[in-house]
Design a protein around this nucleic acid. Structure first.
Lengths: 229, 229
DNA sequence: CTATTAACTGACCGGTCGGCCAATAATAAT
DNA sequence: ATTATTATTGGCCGACCGGTCAGTTAATAG
């Protein structure tokens, strides 16, 4: 509805102490954000095909036309939602990767860090899930994604030259497996929970998987002590 | 359209030599199959939400009403498609798992076999993909799926008791990682291809990943030779 | 041959979809 | 103060959605 000053006094109800400033009479920035937030929730939950812009409009408390005004088509809105999400995602990952020291335990720390990240941000798992089921010919990696991989590859190469990581593994594949192990776990998390007898609580299950996953990955990737070469 | 014998002669065009027998004037079995085939294609490609039963009807060359007659609602059709697919999937996996001898190299063979299976059946990857993005509260594992896991767990326990596999790993998690490594690869296959410089051809990329993946997984899971316990 | 059942068709329903448009109101520019 | 701009609204459009229904036709049981 959003009747601005027709019937209601300007700062009528005192319960909206903060919205008085934040939700100014017209605030296109805040409007765009409200739309993106609502769209992100609905898109990640039900998928782009099953989400109508009418639903987004209702959730964001704006008009359907306003969404078209700000974002054009539904396709563009979905793209905008993805862009914002992946920007945050890549920025964070880049930051985590760059601030990590190239210590002996770089890989383990990265593996655990990625696990923790997905654990605390299930939305990212769902986002990637929708990306994977996109039309196959429209799937292409973004530039930040490639940069992320390149940095990771470089770090692994250094570690390989210093003899901390087996040299007979291609860095790209090491990263792929490093990502796959935590991601697959959380992608099938609901299925997993419905499969294991619920004699044990959830969080401890995560921890036990993390422990074994690290063992499998790390001892497989680490250069053997008695390396002949 | 499917005008049976109104205008066209019974076995009019001689080019349909096989459909003369298979597509009898009325063949509910064949009709159901045609609908399921068309639906499976469209559902796996575009997802259940973006697929209309009108499209399915067009592709299967039947009437929309006929689909409702045979399957009820769209939801039930999607369920029928999933049931058929997962039945084939689980039957095959069960067969592969049971016929595998409990040799020294059981795990490696299973890992490679699953990789090859997904490589030759991309549809299964997409099917699981849609399953993962389902509404979270409707995700629950089927009985055959649980059975598959139980058999795998038993085999791994035997191998652990015989000392061929590390005892400090939970069998369930070993299976989870065994599945995750090939699956994640093919799930992000398009993204991967768009990321690597196309200096190298596709198939060899798969082979190189397989090689490194086996190394990482196997040498991490295998019991160390100098096991103290 | 007849009656019953079931496969199958075409027309139609209310509802929702994405998107467009003219009108209006708040803001920014002059 | 006047103008230009743009954020915002409600109404409207044709298309398509999933689903129903009455009727027709083929297979089948008696």
């Amino acid at each position: 509805m959003a009747i601005y000053l027709s019937d209601t006094p300007p700062k009528a109800s005192p319960e909206e102490e903060e919205s008085a400033d934040l939700r100014r009479r017209r605030d296109p920035e805040a409007t765009r954000k409200a739309i993106l937030d609502a769209a992100e929730d609905l898109f990640t939950c039900h998928g782009p095909a099953a989400t109508s812009i009418s639903q987004v409009a209702r959730r964001a408390e704006v008009t359907k036309s306003l969404i078209h005004h700000h974002f054009g088509s539904k396709e563009e809105l979905w793209q905008a939602v993805q862009d914002r999400h992946f920007k945050e995602y890549f920025d964070l990952q880049m930051q985590l990767l760059e601030q990590s020291e190239s210590t002996e335990t770089l890989l383990e720390e990265s593996l655990v860090a990625y696990f923790r990240f997905l654990q605390n941000d299930p939305k990212s798992v769902r986002f990637m899930g929708w990306r994977f089921v996109e039309e196959e010919d429209s799937q292409c990696a973004a530039d930040p994604e490639k940069q992320l991989f390149e940095i990771g590859i470089r770090k692994i190469q250094e570690a390989q030259e210093e003899g901390r990581i087996r040299r007979d593994l291609e860095p790209f594949f090491i990263i792929k497996t490093l990502i796959a192990l935590p991601f697959s776990w959380f992608q099938s998390h609901c299925l997993t929970l419905s499969m294991v007898d619920s004699e044990i609580d959830g969080p401890s299950l995560d921890e036990r998987y993390l422990r074994d996953m690290v063992k499998i990955f790390f001892e497989g990737v680490r250069a053997p002590r008695d390396e002949t070469e």
